[in-house]
Design a protein around this nucleic acid. Structure first.
Lengths: 112, 112
DNA sequence: TTACGTTATATCCATGCAAATATAGCGAAT
DNA sequence: ATTCGCTATATTTGCATGGATATAACGTAA
């Protein structure tokens, strides 16, 4: 009924998106499923889109965020690096803090 | 070269977007030009898009944000209400505060 | 009463983006 | 050797979004 404030934050590295909400979702799904194709299915996005997202993350990050293996037992897979874990944790924390901050700012609008 | 954090915030009213960056730009241009069609031209967007944006703002706001007049001297025009002025000022301030807040949070990522 | 410049709205069309589809390449296991 | 399930890509197809265009409605001023 009343006003709500929403936000979307993301992190860029030399003008490319490194991390955003969608990319974090994808990384978490990879962590859970152990493969990019299963992660894509669980998020109801096409494998192509998932691959493009992951590719852009790994290309713009300082260190690799996932290790992808082709072939081998089970056909391959993808798993998060330690750096990848740290990134998504930090992003989640910042995002949560941002929501709290904005909710408090919203009063300025409600008072009008 | 290093990571940057960016954000986009917006305000919703019963699941409709009330105010965002684009809508604030449009309202400021209306304030400057005195008409919706001139504002659209100055922002290089079609009149149709500008009208849709303004219409959705006025439909989801508690009080009118602009007064639009059809016909009359000069064919008509649009001008901000006092409530409209207050809204864009509050939005700008919140946005600026948000940037400052996020820049400070970014350190958590840089330290990884 | 006619002309004007605007708001307001419908319709058509092109363009781009995303999904679907297809296919190649890989390496371990059998 | 062959199969399997995945990563990695190119190509086509479909759909939605937005732009262009057209036009109605309006009220003041001449």
């Amino acid at each position: 009924m009343s006003y709500k404030i929403k936000s979307r934050i993301w992190i860029e590295s030399n003008n490319n998106v490194l991390l955003g909400e969608g990319r974090v979702h994808l990384l978490k799904a990879i962590q859970k499923t152990g493969s990019l194709s299963k992660a894509a299915k669980s998020l109801n996005i096409s494998y192509k889109k998932a691959w493009q997202l992951l590719d852009s993350v790994n290309k713009s990050a300082k260190k690799p965020v996932t290790i992808n293996s082709i072939g081998g037992k089970g056909g391959g897979g993808a798993e998060l690096t330690e750096y990848g874990h740290s990134l998504i944790n930090a992003f989640d924390e910042i995002n949560k803090n941002c929501w709290a901050f904005l909710d408090q700012q919203l009063d300025k609008i409600k008072q009008l």
